[in-house]
Simulated assay, not measured.
Amino acid sequence: MTTGYFLDLELDHCPKLERLQMPSLPNLRHLVLGEHYGLKEVDCGGLQSLELLTVHLCYSLRTLPSVATTLRTLNLAYCESLESLKASSSLPNLRDLRLHVCHKLKELDCEGCGSLEHLELGVCHKLERLQMPSLPNLRYLELCKCYGLKEVDCGGCGSLEHLFLYDCNGLERLQMPSLPNLRHLDLRECYGLKEVDCGGLPSLQNLSVAECGSLKRISVLPRSLETLRLQKCRQLQVLDGLDTLTNLRGVRIVECFHIAEESLPENIKRLPRLPYRWL
């Protein structure tokens, strides 16, 4: 390993290993660490060309290992002791970040990750707020089963195209003040959400909302909308801008008891009924 000629390296299943110090491998681009259940510390200081780092089933790891600024993809899964991830200054070239089953994660700081394009968070129960004041290149955001999440602020994500929120049942506030490129918005099982404001989404084409039990109002539906799916939003009372949807091609409204069929505008009644499908 001291030769430094490795491009890819996979180290798996060392359950008793507590500390891993990587030697100088200036050409290493891909590193995978898996099933190191006792691993608490990783020293990646000698990996000056690292582009992809995957860490999974390292239950004792509490902090992100120090890695080179060349990193482009970071995957962390089943790192159940990880409490914080501060990538703001150390990962300026990061493009893809995925965190799954990091139960104790309380803080995620990506403010300085100006190159980030893809962000996924799944089963991160302790995370309460996700604020993204400056992620100008982020195009895809997915949040799934983050039960403690109360607030999501997308204010600095001007390039965002796809936003998916699934089973974030503690979510109370979703801030989307200006997302000029957002085309797909999918919200499902966000039971605490009371209002969705689409006023800052002038390019929105597909809107799907299902099983958001506290949702009462969807504000300022944009004229760009082409498909509208609403299902089991039983408290939903207001669809602001429904009569302006001249580009709408299909609609599905099921078990939204306060939205009566006879109250819909005539142009909406004549539209084809969309099948049950999530984008």
Rank of each mutant, 00 (worst) to 15 (best):
S208Q: 10
P177N: 03
L185K: 00
V238M: 07
Q48F: 10
L47A: 04
E172Y: 04
S159L: 06
L108W: 02
N137P: 02
V196T: 05
R249G: 07
L264W: 08
R188C: 12
L271P: 05
Y140V: 11
E151H: 08
R277Q: 11
L230R: 01
A210V: 06
E172H: 12
Y276D: 11
N267W: 09
C212M: 02
L20R: 01
E51D: 10
D96M: 06
L71W: 05
C144W: 07
C198P: 00
V209T: 03
C190Y: 00
G114E: 14
E226C: 11
L179Y: 03
E262S: 13
L119D: 07
C144M: 10
L138C: 11
L47F: 06
E262C: 08
S60K: 14
C157I: 02
R19W: 05
L127R: 01
V220N: 14
V55A: 04
L94K: 04
T246Q: 11
S88P: 00
E262Q: 12
E107L: 14
E151V: 15
C79V: 05
C233V: 04
L105Q: 02
H103F: 14
Q131K: 12
T70I: 07
L171D: 02
V220F: 13
C154R: 00
H30T: 14
S89P: 00
L264C: 09
L239E: 01
C124E: 04
G156T: 05
G4D: 09
V254W: 10
R188K: 10
L171Y: 02
E111K: 12
L31A: 05
G213A: 06
G45P: 02
N27M: 11
L25C: 13
C233K: 02
G122K: 13
K194R: 14
L149N: 03
Q48S: 15
L182I: 12
L82H: 01
E111Q: 15
L242R: 01
V254I: 09
E51H: 13
R249T: 13
G213N: 11
L193P: 00
E151F: 02
L130H: 03
Q131V: 13
L228R: 04
